[in-house]
Design a binder for these strands. Structure first.
Length: 871
RNA sequence: GCCCGGGUGGUGAAAUUGGUAGACACAAGGGACUUAAAAUCCCUCGGCUUCACGGCCGUACCGGUUCGAUUCCGGUCCCGGGCACCA
């Protein structure tokens, strides 16, 4: 007998799929389609475990759906533009294009080694001109429709390098290259009007019933629809041609408690006043050093300065001061906010700091205690100190104040969204050029017949400036016979990832962005799988783009992704040692040996190379910074793809974090070896023909001769099958693997060597191989053929549960007394309450707890338990 | 700070969603086989208590609803994801 040799088995299976073109699909209106999509990878160099997990999940789902008879599309491609390629290019002195292409070649090979059933004939890369060409064309359409426009917005600016930095490139407020403090700079950039679609993006979340609730909640909160009022505070004098500060509030009931108004540092009024106020000018300058990230904004110290200017309260006519606050954003809302220190915690702290008045106008509904010396009272309540509005609750006050403001022409009810328009300009090189021309002071979309605007690939990176910005020639062009200049900014890479799912349906189409016939056959995607970190931005942009494509007549569906699965992260143990400076030097788990106590806990670890001890850094997300990445390649070479896939699916359910464990991988390998050995040693090649019909079900004649032991064995197998089917449908693959293990335990357990048992075990093996196939396809494919089931397991029908095998004459019914388990009784599954009660009360272990007490209530949960309530 | 998750044995987890808590594995301990090791097979394995039958406690913590709560509700603590230029 030969030992299990994963390499030979896996190579042969992969070759077979390649020759048969098993995973290449075309549109077939006769068959039900199923589009299964994994988020495409950024070609960073090598696959990491997160990729392995992601693509194993989609491969499992794809193969399962294929066995259910569907026409399954499972494509793969490369999200090839992005910042890391520029960094790598500078480091390695290669052009980003070449570096990216090398990575793609290597990673593609790794994907093939893992046996993923992708339709490689549809492979695409976003850095290819025949891909981004259509994105450029689509953008010009958006400009023509008024859905894309140019406006001034903020970027991180390194004054020394004179370059724009990504948030990631700003480390503690400084440039990551030269440590110079970063400032905010306002420059003209292209934006897309996602806010025009805010209402639809919110409302259509209701259509996405097969998305996780948490993702829908996050998106709804991100869009942030609110109902409030716009209220005008007139300035006591015009500044920069501005006479009124409109503010938006969701709490107009607190309007009488306004004691000042704050405006953004970049507000035109602030800028105009700064011209004659050096203190204010200095303050505004200092605000420019603040981070543009919202998290930093929320945590920073709130600072402000009085402008000396006042505005008029729209209801009382009193003057309130106008302040400049570092926490007010110019590009969100009107750049001005009203402040109610008594009823908003941030305003409260600000008012305390600058000795501004705090005026209570809301009292609690119940006689609750509030202490305005300690904190703001932010709950809704009843109005006080508000003149004619005193005594009203929130809703009544909202309406009464809205009505009065409207009558005075000082405000109106307004619906607002937190969502902001999508800024798509990037001042970087490795992206799709934005297809716009500047000529005679006009912004002109590049005409369709001049697309694509090709990004030159043979470039040298100086580390600071984008090569197409650095080259004065590249931008030069003409328009209608006159000199013109190309835009040198490139698109946000979210642009490419917002429509790739649609392009997979017709990647070769050269007559337009999409071939509507093919796109509408496959779309929407039936199952989308990717990391939870994309729950908001990528998924929201892709939903938005899909609606834009629909409105351009390219697709006929409203939403791109019907069902969504967000997989958890992959974690691993980390180890470090401190160097002389006290810095942590992280050591890869592969280079560490561990020592355990008698409970199996890791108590000590040593570096394999020098035998010296290392510190244990805990289980954290696999990352470069902690050097705890486990290279999938090493595991594949040692154990084979099936073992790696099986472990990945078994160790945790898809949505949860997955902890890499070498022992766990060995456990997965042990299961596969056991299956292999069981088949080699115990399975007769004629068994299939002897016991099973052409659908691999037990032949009727054997069904009739089952002994009690073989019937019980068959129940175990069909129970496991039923559970596995349930779990496949809800994407919980760890328990599918459990079911497979149970079946193997059953069919490999020692038992009487008679025909009924052999018959049941043969049927069980056929079920096991088909259940296991989507997860560990190579070994299942090999054994299916070798044991004479058939040529290609993928063509076999999915196993069906024989409900008659599950029927029991007698079950264990749990008996509780006052909710505590006190015994079990053997009864018929459809026993009635009276009978069950009589039997239970006759049992001594129950009597111990009921004796001398009165029976108050009896609850029977059929097939499960009986609860006797006594006192 | 704001939004969204998560917390169950020594470990990863399960519990068909309000009805037997710990399936299936991993680790550990004991045993068999072996000159030995590896591999393989068998047994034990939440805590406390009991010679034993059994009893009590136990799903982060505090409280509530219910005949019954890992599951539902309110509060607290800790961990993770996102926060608009990482992808």
């Amino acid at each position: 007998m030969q030992d299990y040799n994963p390499r030979a088995i896996e190579n042969a299976a992969q070759e077979y799929w390649q020759q048969q073109k098993t995973f290449e699909v075309t549109e077939d209106p006769e068959r039900e389609k199923y589009y299964c999509l994994a988020m495409f990878p950024y070609p960073s160099g090598k696959l990491h475990m997160g990729h392995v997990r992601n693509y194993t999940i989609t491969d499992v789902i794809s193969r399962y759906q294929k066995m259910l008879g569907k026409n399954v599309l499972h494509p793969m491609g490369w999200d090839a533009f992005g910042l890391p390629a520029e960094n790598a290019a500078i480091q390695n002195k290669t052009a980003p294009a070449a570096w990216t292409e090398q990575n793609i070649q290597y990673m593609k090979r790794q994907l093939e080694d893992l046996g993923f059933g992708f339709d490689w004939s549809r492979e695409l890369r976003t850095c290819a001109p025949d891909y981004y060409r259509w994105e450029q064309w689509f953008f010009t359409r958006l400009v023509e429709k008024g859905l894309a426009y140019r406006k001034v917005s903020a970027v991180n600016w390194c004054p020394k390098d004179e370059t724009v930095l990504a948030n990631e490139q700003v480390v503690e407020g400084c440039c990551w290259r030269c440590d110079t403090p970063v400032v905010r700079k306002e420059i003209p950039q292209w934006s897309i009007r996602i806010t025009d679609y805010a209402e639809e993006l919110l409302a259509d979340l209701d259509q996405l019933q097969e998305w996780p609730d948490q993702v829908r909640a996050m998106q709804a909160n991100w869009i942030g629809k609110s109902r409030g009022q716009e209220i005008n505070f007139d300035l006591t004098k015009d500044i920069a041609g501005i006479s009124t500060l409109p503010v938006y509030t969701t709490r107009p009931d607190t309007l009488l408690g306004v004691t000042y108004v704050s405006i953004a540092a970049t507000h035109p009024v602030a800028e105009a006043l700064a011209a004659t106020n050096s203190e204010l000018a200095e303050f505004i300058l200092s605000c420019a050093e603040q981070s543009t990230a919202e998290a930093d904004m929320a945590l920073m110290e709130k600072r402000g300065i009085a402008t000396g200017l006042n505005c008029i309260h729209p209801l009382t006519g009193e003057e309130v001061p106008v302040w400049v606050g570092n926490y007010v954003l110019m590009d969100y809302g009107s750049g001005a906010v009203m402040a109610v220190p008594a009823h908003d915690q941030r305003d409260f702290e600000f008012a305390r700091k600058y000795q501004l008045p705090i005026k209570q106008v809301i009292a609690p509904l119940e006689d609750g205690e509030i202490d305005l010396d300690k904190e703001a009272f932010v709950d809704k309540g009843r109005l006080i100190n508000s003149g004619e509005f005193d005594g009203l609750d929130f809703d009544a006050a909202f309406n009464a104040i809205a009505e009065k403001l409207e009558r005075l022409g000082k405000g109106q009810v307004q619906t607002n969204y937190r969502l902001r328009d999508w800024g798509v300009s990037r001042q970087r090189y490795w992206g799709a050029p934005i297809p716009m021309l500047f000529a005679n002071g006009e912004e002109i979309p590049v005409p369709a017949d001049r697309l694509p605007v090709v990004l030159p690939e043979d470039v040298e990176m100086d580390g600071v400036q984008s090569p197409i910005k650095a080259d004065p020639e590249w931008r030069k062009t003409e328009y209608q016979g006159k000199p013109a200049e190309h835009e040198t900014d490139t698109f946000d890479t979210f642009m490419e990832s917002s429509w790739y799912f649609a392009r997979y349906t017709c990647p070769d189409f050269d007559q337009g962005m999409l071939d509507p016939e093919r796109a509408n056959y496959w779309l929407p995607v039936d199952q989308y799988v990717g990391g939870i970190e994309h729950a908001i931005l990528h998924l929201l942009y892709a939903r938005f783009f899909h609606k834009l494509m629909r409105d351009e007549g390219l697709v006929n569906s409203d939403e791109p992704f019907k069902r969504l699965l967000c997989q958890g992260m992959v974690l691993a143990q980390s180890y470090y040692r401190l160097d002389e400076q006290g810095h942590k030097e992280w050591i890869n788990p592969a280079d560490v040996e561990v020592e355990r106590d008698d409970k199996g806990l890791i108590v000590a670890a040593r570096c394999k190379a020098d035998g010296r001890p290392v510190e244990i850094g805990g289980t954290t997300k696999m990352s470069k910074s902690k050097n705890n990445g486990v290279d999938p390649q090493a595991a594949i070479e040692q154990y084979g793809a099936d073992t790696v896939r099986l472990f990945t699916m078994f160790a945790a359910p898809p949505e949860q974090t997955l902890e890499w464990s070498d022992e766990g991988v060995q456990g997965a390998a042990r299961f596969i070896r056991r299956l292999y050995r069981h088949c080699q040693e115990n399975v007769d090649k004629d068994a299939v023909r002897t016991y099973l019909d052409e659908s691999f079900n037990l032949e009727t004649k054997w069904l009739e001769t089952l002994s009690e032991a073989s019937a019980e064995s068959r129940k175990t197998i069909h129970d496991a099958l039923k559970k596995a089917n349930f779990d496949y449908d809800r994407n919980q693959f760890n328990t599918v693997v459990s079911s497979c293990m149970k079946i193997l335990n059953e069919i490999a357990s020692p038992s009487a060597d008679d025909a009924p048992i052999s018959a049941v075990k043969t049927e069980g093996l056929g079920i096991l191989l088909r259940l296991l196939y989507p997860i560990a396809p190579h070994i299942s494919h090999y054994l299916w053929e070798q044991l004479g089931f058939g040529k290609d397991i993928l063509a076999a029908a999915w196993p069906e549960v024989d409900e008659s095998a599950l029927v029991q004459n007698e079950i264990d019914l749990m008996v509780q007394v006052n909710g505590k388990l006190r015994g079990k009784i053997k009864v018929s599954p459809d026993v009635d309450q009276d009978t069950a009660q009589t039997i239970a009360l006759a049992s001594p272990s129950v009597q111990k707890f009921t004796e001398g007490k009165t029976l108050r209530k009896v609850i029977l949960v059929p097939g499960r338990l009986l609860n006797l309530v006594v006192s």
